[in-house]
């Protein structure tokens, strides 16, 4: 693999890490498997593309975050107030959002951002112009992780984590868990949208189907991180998610380099997550089999 391809994988990993952290919030902190991600990712990207075309690449990031956060809130309300199972609530919003995303993109299936201003041009004229490609994703990622770590250590953050752990306890402590799920899902999907917003600008285009399988990639990153880097403390967990996202991208880059057709990418992602999720069961079965063999 060339150095350039390797660098590219790391940069992509840093961008996707923002999405993975969002999936970490819904999947691990709130304990909700949230499929909204596949569409809210595109929402962030679409809003970002529209803002770039209008000449506001930086404003595109908070706008993408907010638009996707609203999508997450809809899923939360379907779940908490209309009592639809989280999995199904996510699927419903994911489906509906597809049409919304098309509308945001002006009923086009893709938007090209070549010749449009993006955040990656904002260092032009400074000595760092050549480094913008990795400096900006790194800066954004550090900002997101820093803010999120601080947030999870606040009172609000405590209660949010408690809600994922044990809703009954949080209600017994006088907190409306519906509101906490609403806030948590908004945050999780907001981060996913922010990632979409950055990615659209990084690759200079936005496509209506760019979010397919995104939740699986997010899960893969979370799980790979946990397996390799551990879950001892909160900081360690966040770091693990980031490193997991980068490792995932490097693995994919290697596979592509070895001649895997890029059309097989989704199958490989699905297999990686299946293996990672079933690891504990497979391990137990293996030990049982060994025990039996020895008699």
């Amino acid at each position: 693999m060339t150095i350039i391809a390797f660098q590219g994988a790391i940069i992509l990993g840093m961008i996707y890490a923002i999405m993975a952290v969002g999936v970490f919030i819904s999947f691990r902190t709130l304990d909700i498997p949230d499929l909204t991600v596949d569409s809210s990712f595109v929402t962030g990207a679409a809003v970002s593309a529209v803002f770039c075309v209008a000449g506001h690449p930086w404003l595109a990031l908070p706008a993408g975050f907010l638009a996707s956060a609203v999508a997450g809130m809809v899923t939360a309300v379907l779940n908490t107030h209309l009592k639809i199972q989280p999995l199904l609530a996510g699927i419903l919003v994911m489906l509906g959002l597809y049409s919304v995303n098309l509308r945001i993109m002006g009923n086009r299936a893709n938007i090209s951002l070549l010749n449009q201003p993006t955040i990656f041009q904002s260092l032009e004229g400074t000595p760092l112009a050549d480094q913008a490609e990795w400096l900006i994703p790194l800066a954004l990622l550090l900002l997101v992780i820093g803010l999120l770590y601080g947030f999870l250590k606040t009172r609000f953050g405590f209660i949010l984590r408690g809600t994922g752990d044990n809703q009954q306890m949080v209600r017994a402590l006088g907190v409306d868990t519906s509101k906490m799920i609403l806030a948590g899902m908004a945050l999780a999907n907001g981060l996913v949208g922010l990632c979409g917003a950055v990615l659209a600008q990084y690759q200079s285009y936005c496509d209506i189907s760019m979010g397919v399988g995104m939740v699986v990639i997010g899960l893969a990153s979370v799980i790979i991180g946990e397996v390799i880097f551990g879950i001892r403390s909160l900081f360690r967990r966040l770091l693990a998610v980031v490193l997991g996202a980068i490792v995932y991208r490097i693995v994919i880059a290697f596979a592509l380099n070895l001649g895997m057709p890029s059309t097989d990418l989704k199958l490989v992602s699905a297999i990686i997550v299946t293996l990672a999720l079933s690891l504990p069961v497979l391990k137990a079965k293996y030990f049982l089999w060994q025990k039996r063999r020895k008699g």
């Binding site: 606040t154 009172r155 609000f156 405590f158 984590r161 408690g162 752990d165 949080v170 402590l173």
Partner: peptide, 22 residues
């Protein structure tokens, strides 16, 4: 909450009836 520390659990109980802000 099993995945949180003893201290964090107690802190949540101490917030009862107060604002859960930042």
């Amino acid at each position: 909450a099993y995945a949180m520390t003893i201290e964090e659990n107690l802190a949540m109980a101490l917030m009862k009836g107060q604002q859960h802000g930042l």
